[in-house]
Amino acid sequence: MTSPNTLFDPLTLPCGVTLKNRLAKSAMSDSLGDGTGHPTPPQVRLYQRWAEGGVGLSIIGEVQGSPFVAEKPGNLVLNGSSDLARFQELSNKGRARNAHLWVQLGHGGALAYAPTSTPQGPSALDLPDLQCTALSCAAVKQAPADFAHTAKLAKDAGFGGVQIHAAHGFLLSQFLSPLFNKRTDAYGGSLTNRMRLLLETIETVRTAVGPSFPIAVKLNSSDQLHGGLTEDDSLQVVAALDRTSIDLIDISGGTYFPGAKSASDATSSGPYFLTFARRARALTSKPLMLTGGFKTYDQAHDAVSSGIVDVVGLARAMALEPSLPDLWRAQTTLAPQFPRFATSPQGGVTAWYTMRLSKIATGNTEPDLLDLDAALETYEARDKDRTDIWLRHFGPPN
């Protein structure tokens, strides 16, 4: 177990790589890809801005190996057909001031964006707002190699590490959850079987990238759904992860399944999953990162100095103030001003923050006046435009 440290002490990961501080811009779906799966100049500027603001680590949300499993048409796709030079520009600019820039390895599974994908999960689903078919045995066995191929390309493009996404209801999270995984083969049933795909993916990715390249896992503390992955289940996964070669466990929670309550929309004034992180700390010597609900310097400092976690993941706080790490170091702005919305249409808050990222990417950090309805309309119109580009570039879902 690491000893208690301040937010601006370096952290050396098990693989030997050192992060300059304990503040991470956690993965968000910024939707700033160009519709062909490639980074855009605004996206490059966004990650450069965060690096220049003093963050130790940024993680790019939802980078897929296949265009047919993407969560949004603004996501990145990194495979053998990608223009690696465009990814190299992103990795170069996102490493300003000795920041780390990692790629989150994603697969939408049942949540893959239906207009551009054929959603498939561990088991078939036929719900009012969500339908998918079950992955074949062959496809399940192929998945670790697909994740590993994208990880190796990320390393080749100059990114500093990868995060395997096993949270928020996407594919690997679906396999862990008894609510969505009804398989009767070696990948379903007991928790040992349900975590098999995650553990095989870690092993295959490690073989592809070598021993000195950071690998993180993003894990739900629970699905926050009746019949889903429980905290006790997740703690068993943490114990299993402790026996692997990973370098960091990023704790989060909740799912993006239609109708499910988002943890990020909670009204709690503090970190959402700190109690779970304290329980997880007793089960692993791996560095722990905690994402969700951090709004002030004191909350972040207390979490790290107590020894409960080693890294604090910041998402919406970094969308509001991209220089927050430097401001915290200087003790000048200890809490960004979070907006309060009178009404909240479904998806409106997420749309508002996503459009806020677009604004930062243009160099504008002035306060936003856009209301949720206008943000949602702009966000959905952009998705439609990118969907058209995506389908022209990649073709229809296969």
Rank of each mutant, 00 (worst) to 15 (best):
Q88V: 03
K359H: 05
V309Y: 03
P325A: 05
R382G: 00
G106R: 08
L130T: 12
N79C: 08
A148E: 09
L84C: 07
L57Y: 14
N98M: 14
T118P: 00
D156H: 03
A300Y: 10
L241F: 06
A239M: 03
A96S: 15
L32G: 05
F170H: 07
V55I: 15
R340Q: 14
F273G: 08
E321S: 12
P322T: 07
L46R: 01
S245I: 01
T184G: 13
S117I: 07
G348E: 13
L19C: 07
N21S: 04
G270E: 08
T354A: 05
P336Q: 03
A303R: 00
S358R: 02
G53I: 14
A240R: 02
L372M: 01
D146K: 14
L172Y: 01
A300W: 00
N79F: 08
F180G: 02
A148N: 04
S305D: 02
A239Y: 00
E203T: 15
I202M: 05
V238R: 09
G94Q: 09
D383A: 05
T204N: 12
A335K: 15
V309E: 00
T204Q: 11
D265F: 11
C137E: 13
N98P: 13
V238T: 00
S221D: 04
E377Y: 02
K25G: 01
L274S: 06
R95I: 10
I389S: 04
D388G: 00
S305A: 02
L11Q: 08
A208C: 04
R95S: 15
D30Y: 11
M28V: 13
D232V: 00
R196L: 06
H149T: 08
P67G: 14
R95H: 11
Q142D: 14
T201R: 06
Q331G: 09
A186L: 08
F294T: 04
T350V: 12
T343W: 10
A24G: 00
D129T: 14
S136D: 04
T40L: 07
D310G: 04
G307A: 01
A143E: 14
V238Q: 02
I308L: 05
I308F: 08
Q88H: 11
T275I: 03
L172N: 06
H393A: 04
F87C: 11
Q48P: 00
W50Y: 15
D265P: 06
P41T: 00
A167S: 12
K25I: 07
A151V: 01
M1R: 04
G108K: 10
E203A: 15
D233E: 10
W352N: 09
M195V: 07
V238P: 05
R329Q: 15
L7K: 00
L197Y: 09
A124F: 11
V55R: 15
